[in-house]
Design a protein around this nucleic acid. Structure first.
Lengths: 163, 163
DNA sequence: AAAAAAGTGCAACATTATAACAGTTGCGAG
DNA sequence: CTCGCAACTGTTATAATGTTGCACTTTTTT
């Protein structure tokens, strides 16, 4: 698979979403998991925004399109999607974003622009090796890594310089 | 300053707390910041637990000792302590822990045991260099790093083996 | 077809965090 | 000293985020 376009570069985002959904269906089939209509719709809504979406943002979009939904509906769908590696929760934002590296064994590193709100997910073996090494040095058994970098994305840096 | 004892090793924790408070007073004096009684008490409460404390845990302790406090009291104290590098917020737990590396320019790495709840804060230049390098490669201007590793601490690994 | 498992809808509730505003205290300028 | 500003505190109310429990439906298994 070729590299996915950077979120802050213009691109055909509908295609981006379609591809993510197709991958999701394929992954769920492999894992004998049921990507039900609600789950698929939640995944789609999350992918349609490059900015992470809060659970209640998703809920609002669902109800606005006639889906009779309550918070548990959304949280259950999000739990399912997380468990299958289709979305990530961004702890520092209490929000969710589509996983850009489905399938790969991903120690996701998230670059979060505090100006435009866009998020870029990277995987970097140098980083994850360093973290595992540091944890091992303390005899700590690593299970999950939360790594979120807040700052300013290239596009917003350029904006600032124009002022 | 010598290395502080690991949290999961037995040690004289009162001394640990006293030292942290003394450092805090010194730092606030240097920075012309007012470490008021409420702020100091909140810092002390947080240090008295190696497990991160939620804001409402702090609040409960304050009210139980007669301090008429409401949520904003606690959140304001915590904001102050964070701004001066005296406590860290653990995003994945919605909780706060004393900063074990006051003064140092700290990209804190937190090892969080999901069995006993203890947290160990490390600083590791290998890790932070790798993160800065990965962010730079995307032309991203890093401002803050959240790095939290969940897993099992050495003590709890030993426990598990005894069963 | 019956039983078991997985998923959904719904109401209530729990937890975490902030807003708005009035009152108080510390501290420097005149 | 005392006036006045800035920082800090207390209080009420409310917003935002997340969970529990239970009845019901759908899907899968046997």
């Amino acid at each position: 698979m070729s590299a996915r376009a950077l979120p802050y570069r213009p691109h055909n985002h509908d295609a981006c979403v379609s591809q993510a959904l197709a991958e999701a269906r394929s992954i769920c089939q492999q894992q004998n998991a049921r990507l039900t209509p609600t789950r698929e719709r939640v995944l789609e809504l999350i992918w349609q925004s490059h900015k992470p979406l809060g659970a209640y943002d998703v809920l609002a979009k669902l109800t606005s399109e006639g889906h009779s939904a309550a918070p548990p509906t959304v949280y259950r769908a999000l739990d399912f999607l997380q468990q299958h590696g289709l979305v990530h929760r961004i702890a520092s934002l209490n929000a969710f974003t589509g996983c850009a590296h489905t399938g790969e064994h991903h120690t996701g590193l998230f670059l979060i622009c505090r100006t435009c709100g866009n998020v870029l997910e990277l995987t970097d073996t140098g980083v994850s090796d360093a973290i595992h090494k540091a944890a091992s040095a303390e005899a700590f058994r690593t299970e999950a890594i939360t790594l979120e970098v807040a700052g300013i994305c290239p596009a917003c840096q350029a904006e600032q310089n124009h002022e």
